[in-house]
Design a protein around this nucleic acid. Sequence first.
DNA 1: GTTGACATATGACAACTTGTCACATATAAT
DNA 2: ATTATATGTGACAAGTTGTCATATGTCAAC
Lengths: 202, 202
Amino acid sequence: MPSDTFLRLNDEKKKKLIDASFKEFSLNNFNDASINRIIKEAGISRGSFYMYFEDKKDLYFYLLEQYGEILSNNMKKDLIKNKGDLFKMFQDNIEESYNSFKNNNINFFKKSLENVTIMEESKRTFGFRDKRLLKELIPNINLELLNDKARRHIEVIFAINMHLLMVTLFKLLKEDSLDKKMLKDYYEQLDILKYGCSIEKK
Amino acid sequence: MPSDTFLRLNDEKKKKLIDASFKEFSLNNFNDASINRIIKEAGISRGSFYMYFEDKKDLYFYLLEQYGEILSNNMKKDLIKNKGDLFKMFQDNIEESYNSFKNNNINFFKKSLENVTIMEESKRTFGFRDKRLLKELIPNINLELLNDKARRHIEVIFAINMHLLMVTLFKLLKEDSLDKKMLKDYYEQLDILKYGCSIEKK
DNA sequence: GTTGACATATGACAACTTGTCACATATAAT
DNA sequence: ATTATATGTGACAAGTTGTCATATGTCAAC
């Protein structure tokens, strides 16, 4: 987490550092991103940087959380619009997410997708750190549309959707156009999650 | 990919480098792993290393593929045993995978799970590079047990299972015992994938 | 004002990192 | 024995990170 010192910084200085960071992480993936270049671009000293953030990771997750907020807010809106229907929300959400990312630091997002790890760290990714944003969403879900098992594993459903969503968004952003076939594939995958893989009904 | 020069190396020298690499990646995640320490431990020169592998990534994925083979072979065996039933295979497979990893460089595996990325790179992860191992598995699947959509998205089903499997294995290996509750959770998640989340039947 | 206490800022520094390259030494083939 | 090819080597440049002694703000109290 950024230090209080950073949060207390005046907006201009803060913005300069954030902009420089976004730029660096847009051009390089996490490993190759250089704190040196960031501080040079932002015009601050090495010591100051370590006053604000613990390390590169700390800065990176701070930036990611900005996107988490966007993603979560979009989902919340779509959830309300669809009267708590989780799958209708997922379906509506992808175009919205696509546009958010397209108009906003698209390269940062692309690079980020390359870095997303499915484990520990991913819990923090895109602001779903500490399951905070997830917890905010759950009350808006109409659980009556879901069966018992799904209700018990609601975070897993989200994780699976996240996985499908990320992979699809990654492809979409690569193509640079909202490829209808890819969208259709995503909807089919959501259908698998909704109705299952089996021919036999339970 | 390792160079022919590396593959031509005598077994002793090869093993020494592989052992040193496993050790380094068991103690450090990808970023922190040091080629310097590896070559020191393996007793080869820096120049030689770069003769064998392009870079750290190249070495790392080479090691991962060894595990991919294990995973894939286990799956194949279980698939035949269960007469092509994909979900029965998934269910049988987790204990086997758990034991394979437990008795074999468990720390390497743990660290690896922290590094697995869901995107591009992950296609190579655990040997599923180029979908080669996946393609070998598919002929053993009884597709008649799956509905149309599932058949069309068979690699997605595998990806989702991989995700659920990895997360569960990660937790299991952390606990250091085959926690029955976690296993039960995994089976339930597989059931969601098999029969869906929805209360309504399609 | 001046003093003191605290918050911030700085850049030189040690201790690493990686990939390259001119050169040295094996090994095989003529 | 000579040539050609395959390997091995370590010094090197150019980078990386995190720390720390030191300097400079800022603001309240005397």
